[in-house]
């Protein structure tokens, strides 16, 4: 009871909303990647690994070149490269997409630490200096709005980018030719193929896009919210993003709403100093919530019809 009052008390300050948006965005990027990939018919549980790879290479590049933009670019490419492997294996070789996703996650966890040791020996990887981190941007004028300003207009650059991407991806997916084709490929690849749409190109594009977005999220994590790389630092966020995607019924806006819910959970968890509840219970909540959704207690969530089925032309 007391705990509940304390938690409710948190909502009086803009801080908790600010954190919710920040954490939500961190999940939103890979979740959007998942939406794009699965809408094209390729199951993607590898956002975790792509994000981790992005996080690692962002720090490596930033430490090497002292250029945050280059570092972000490298992270995005690294995420995209992992996605390319997933794409080649599951599209070109018709591999089981879950096995491939599991393998991506394992290889990312192993390779980042392996390379960490190979690159830096047993030295410390070191921390990125503050001026080489992804900056927080205060939007002039708007940030002065009481309450609203601190929540929305004093965020990290990536947060703004992610919101723009959210709007853009939503429009692309449901309003444009490209989006129509992408959805067609994910629902019925043979139909798309016979309509002269290149199924493989779209699927490759979609999977790689998911890697680029996850890579950006990784950079946000390691050189935005943090300043260094630590092994396995994504800590299941890619899986939470996967849950958010399902929660959001494979739509960008739905996924965003789910990300905000999970982000709120993290924001509340941060107040463990003043909340008299076992933090381990709080940590379990997002997962239990997802299970409840999956159990159909909060409305069913139906994936694209051809999600997870490798496309082989001429094979109806």
């Amino acid at each position: 009871m007391n705990a509940l009052l304390i938690i409710l008390g948190l909502f009086k300050s803009p801080d908790v909303y600010h954190s919710t948006l920040t954490y939500g965005t961190l999940l939103l990027l890979p979740a959007l990647g998942g939406v794009i990939s699965e809408r094209s018919g390729v199951v993607n549980i590898a956002m975790e690994g792509m994000m981790l790879t992005g996080a690692f290479f962002a720090v490596v590049a930033d430490l090497a070149w002292h250029n945050v933009w280059l570092a972000v670019l490298v992270a995005i490419i690294a995420g995209g490269f992992m996605a390319l492997i997933h794409a080649v294996v599951s599209i070109r070789y018709h591999a089981d997409q879950i096995v491939s996703g599991v393998a991506i996650n394992i290889v990312a966890a192993g390779l980042t630490v392996f390379l960490l040791n190979q690159f830096y020996g047993v030295q410390e990887i070191g921390s990125v200096a503050p001026q080489f981190l992804i900056p927080n941007i205060k939007v002039p004028v708007l940030d002065a709005i009481p309450f609203i300003g601190p929540i929305f207009f004093e965020q990290n650059l990536v947060v703004y980018i992610a919101i723009i991407l959210l709007v853009a991806i939503n429009i692309i997916l449901f309003r444009t030719r490209l989006g129509l084709r992408l959805r067609a490929v994910g629902e019925h690849p043979s139909a798309a193929d016979t309509a002269g749409i290149n199924v493989y190109t779209l699927r490759y594009g979609a999977v790689i896009a998911s890697g680029l977005l996850s890579g950006l999220a990784g950079a946000f994590l390691s050189i935005g919210l943090s300043n260094t790389f630590v092994p396995n630092m994504t800590d299941g966020r890619g899986y939470i993003a996967l849950a958010a995607m399902i929660f959001g019924k494979w739509t960008p806006l739905g996924a965003f709403a789910a990300c905000l819910i999970f982000g709120l959970g993290q924001a509340i968890y941060d107040n463990t100093s003043i909340i008299p509840i076992s933090p381990y219970f709080l940590s379990m909540l997002p997962y239990i919530l997802t299970l409840v959704v999956l159990a159909g207690l909060v409305g069913r969530s139906i994936p694209p019809a051809a999600d997870g089925i490798p496309y082989e032309p001429g094979n109806e």
């Binding site: 294996v89 089981d96 096995v99 491939s100 393998a103």
Partner: peptide, 9 residues
């Protein structure tokens, strides 16, 4: 992971 890739693909 490489074993998995190889087996899956």
């Amino acid at each position: 992971a490489l074993v998995l890739f190889s087996l899956a693909a």
